[in-house]
Every structure is written in structure tokens, then in C-alpha cells.
Design a binder for these strands. Structure first.
Lengths: 245, 245
DNA sequence: CGGGTCGTTGACCGTGATCAAGTAACGTGG
DNA sequence: CCACGTTACTTGATCACGGTCAACGACCCG
């Protein structure tokens, strides 16, 4: 039997004993699959579940009344989706697939069990949640104070450094299953200007594009350009409570 | 003896029994006071404490290498400052006072105690942390997709709805101890354009300014303009674990 | 072949940045 | 009490980054 998504994700950071693993596995629901470009959940739902992404890309976004759209976060396999919503009765954003996706949902109430029985997992989930916050801070900085060129560089570096963790093969090339409208919505540009800027970046030799894949030919130069900090490689787990048993 | 800052803050949301209160109080350190416009902590510090704001405004920010600045979040009395940093070994942002400020610090390690002994407080802190995330999402939307006029409207509404909670007197007027450069850095504009935009908003009759105080004369119209959702009034606490004892 | 999506390119335009000068308020020291 | 420096806000002239609109081509799939 294949391991639970969530356990797999968490044991990347801390060692789980068997009792904890069993308990965690019991909280997870049956996995669900969605096609490309479909709505998963949104502001109208009352469900309030969290999802672990098993495969595929998806993203959360919000619309303004007049149709302007802001993509908030792009989610990859291994990510936990939905933290920002658990403080409220309803989701605050829309969740949509960028391609075919498999998700492992679990109910918000499962956290209750974790908080009472598994302090170490609690600390880990807490850290994962606040790390997301730090990542939003970096994004905010890019959105507020960077040029189009820098914004695109930032987005690519962010995606790249996340994918590096799971695809440990340290390739500079990755698949980017987003169209230019989606890229623009993620960093506050129009699809037209995304096209122009990416073409310019390619002519400068900073990136290379082949179909839907992209290569960062000078990741170091790009990183210097946008003053990039990788938030994914390290996490401070030293203060976590020890496992009971 | 005056009550602990943290307990005061938390008991707004859940009822603490005496044992829990005592335990919490023991985690807090001695309060500290800082003058206007001074640095409290930043990326060079290793300390990694959290702060409850007792009085005064302050803000977290990051700089780009060339001097551009982004104010990330403005903190008011009652706020807990520092969540985004606890996942890392060092702070990710700089913390600076906007005026004279009193803070109640406590060490990140205190969370360990809470996670093990006080599941209900754990759930509450978790919710407060992820609510911050939701607020960043709203801000991101404003930064990415709104005009200068809308951005300023959004900022004012956000500040106003936060102040309404503690100053329960439902006044439309509040003190804004930030200069226009700081306002601009908070929403991605220059001080010059902040000036022009606020003058325009005033001429439209949406706001009124007297010295350092500001009045939202048409909060409803402003809220419609920016499609504003108040994230501060409600929080879902129904799923919290019951208090032990 | 036809329609749809997506990326590209060009012409034009507007929002907000930049630069600079001027004013008001305030504190400090002679 | 005035001279002076500092900080903050305002206003105007000019500029440029990125938006808007539109046309076109590549590709895919039916």
C-alpha cells in the first residue's frame, strides 16, 4: 500500500514513530482527481478542508468585481493547500487546477486531533504555515517594488527553488504548465507584457524556452538581480518538542 | 498587578482557566520600551522572539539592495509580531517603530510549552497566524491589481477596521502616525503620488484630514470601491479543542 | 478544413515615477 | 525673540514603464 501523502510530506522534516504515523493516516480521506482548468473549491463552499497535493499544479486566486484577477499562490506536489482559510468559516480564495491533479483532502477538524495528541506534528504544521507567510512577504516585496523584468525573474526563481526540493535532480530546466495570462496574474502584469519581458529575458541570455519548459541559464545572475532568498531549503526545527514515545 | 499582554489578547477569543493563565504568564518576559523611529530587530539578529504590542505603532519592512523599501505590515497594540520568522533561524524582515512603543517579548521556545500543554491556545495561535496569511492575500490583491486610488483606500480601510476592534468606540476618525513616504512604502507608491492621491480623495469627499488624524467620511463607498472584506471581526473558533479542565 | 487557444508584435496611451522648487511647521540655539 | 535647519507635504513639468487594443501566426484538435 502506498504511503499517505501527508505522512510522506511531513517525514521529510521530522521522524514519525509508528503510532503517530497510524494516527495521521487515519485522518486522511480518499484521494480525488481533477481535470485541467477546473474549479476545486472557492468562496461559496462551506466545506473547509485542507489538501495535500499528490500530483499536478494548481493555484489559488481571487477576482476583483470588474474581472481583474490576482493569482495568489501556485501549488505543487507535496504542498499543503488551504491554511489561510482555516481561521474563517469559508474559504477566502478560489482554487483551480492548472493541469490534471490528484489531491488528498483532510478535514480541518483533523487538526484538533493533532493539536491534542501530537505536539511535534503541531510544531511542524505551524512552521509550514508561517513559512508560507514569509514567502508571501517576499512576493509582496516583488509586487510592490520591482520592475516587470525583476518580477518575472523572481517568479521563475521561486518556482525553480521549490521544484528543486522534490525533483532533487539539480536541473536548471523545468516544466511550466502556466500560460502567460496566468503568469501575469501571478505577479501583477498583463499577458502582453509578460510576453515582451520574457522575450527580452531570453535575448539577454538569462532564460531559455522550449515549448512549455523553461531553463534558467544563469540562475546566479537572476538571483542577484532580484535579491533572491531561498525559503525552501532550510527550516528551523530545533525548537520543536520531542516526540512522545 | 496589570494583566499580561498576551493573556489579554488571547482571552478576547477564548476563555482561559486559571491554570492556563498562570502558565502563559510565566512565559512572558519583562516589557520593553522603544522611542520613535528606532530599529527593534532585523535580519542580523539571532534572538528570534515574538512580541505582543502593548502600545504604539510599529512596522516590519524589507529593503532591496538599491534602497527601494517595502513595508510589509503595520502593527498595532494587541498584535503579535514575528510569526513569519519562527520557521527560520533568523528574522526575515526588519522591525521599526513608527512612534514610541512598548512591547512584551517572549521567546519562540515558549511555543513549545504551549504546544505540549495547552492545545486550545495552540489552536488559537495557529488561527491568528493563518489569519495573517489571509490578510497578506488581500494585500497582495491590492498591490497586484489595484490603482493608486484603490490602494490607498484599501490601506485606510484595513487600518480602520483593525483599530475598530480595540477602540470599540465606532468612530470614523483615527490617528495615522505614518508619513506619506511610509504610506507609499506600504502599498507600492511614491510619497509624491501618495500626496496627490490623498488630496484627490479628499476633494472627492471620501476622506478628511486634520493634522495627523484621518476620517473616513464614506466608509461604505470606500469599501465598495476596493471590494473590502473585514478579516478582523470574525474568526472561526468552533473547531478548537475544548479546554482541559 | 474550421475553430480555439496561445504567443508575438506594433502603435498608441495613461498612470504613476522622477525631478525640482516652494511652503509650512517645528525644534534648537544664539 | 529671531535665525536657522530639518522634516513633511504640496504642486508642477516631464518622462517612461507597462497597459490597451488590434492584427497575425503557430499549433492543436475535431
Amino acid at each position: 500500500m502506498s504511503e499517505s501523502c501527508l505522512i510522506q510530506k511531513l517525514s521529510y522534516y521530522v521522524k514519525l514513530n509508528e503510532a503517530a504515523s497510524k494516527r495521521m493516516a487515519s485522518l486522511e480521506e480518499k484521494e480525488e482527481t481533477y481535470e485541467k482548468g477546473v474549479h476545486v473549491y472557492g468562496r461559496d463552499d462551506r466545506s473547509n478542508r485542507l489538501f495535500v497535493v499528490k500530483s499536478g499544479w494548481l493555484y489559488t486566486y481571487t477576482d476583483l468585481p470588474d474581472g481583474r484577477r490576482q493569482i495568489i499562490r501556485i501549488h505543487h506536489p507535496g504542498d499543503i493547500v488551504g491554511f489561510p482559510d482555516i481561521a474563517f468559516h469559508q474559504p477566502t480564495t478560489e482554487l483551480r487546477t492548472a493541469e490534471r491533479v490528484t489531491l488528498c483532502p483532510f478535514d480541518k477538524k483533523a487538526l484538533q486531533v493533532i493539536f491534542v495528541e501530537l505536539p511535534q506534528i503541531t510544531a511542524l504544521l505551524f512552521s509550514l504555515a508561517v513559512r508560507e507567510e514569509a514567502i508571501f512577504i517576499d512576493l509582496l516585496r516583488a509586487m510592490g517594488r520591482m520592475s516587470a523584468r525583476e518580477k518575472i525573474g523572481y517568479l521563475l526563481l521561486d518556482l525553480w527553488s521549490r521544484l528543486k526540493i522534490t525533483n532533487s535532480a539539480a536541473s536548471d530546466t523545468f516544466r511550466l504548465p502556466l500560460n502567460q495570462s496566468e503568469i501575469g496574474d501571478a505577479i501583477g502584469l498583463t499577458n502582453v507584457y509578460v510576453s515582451k519581458t520574457m522575450t527580452a529575458l531570453e535575448e539577454e541570455g538569462l532564460i531559455r524556452r522550449v515549448g512549455t519548459t523553461i531553463s534558467l541559464t544563469r540562475p546566479d545572475r537572476l538571483a542577484r538581480l532580484v535579491d533572491f532568498t531561498d525559503r525552501y531549503v532550510t527550516m528551523d526545527t530545533t525548537w520543536f518538542p520531542m516526540t512522545a514515545g
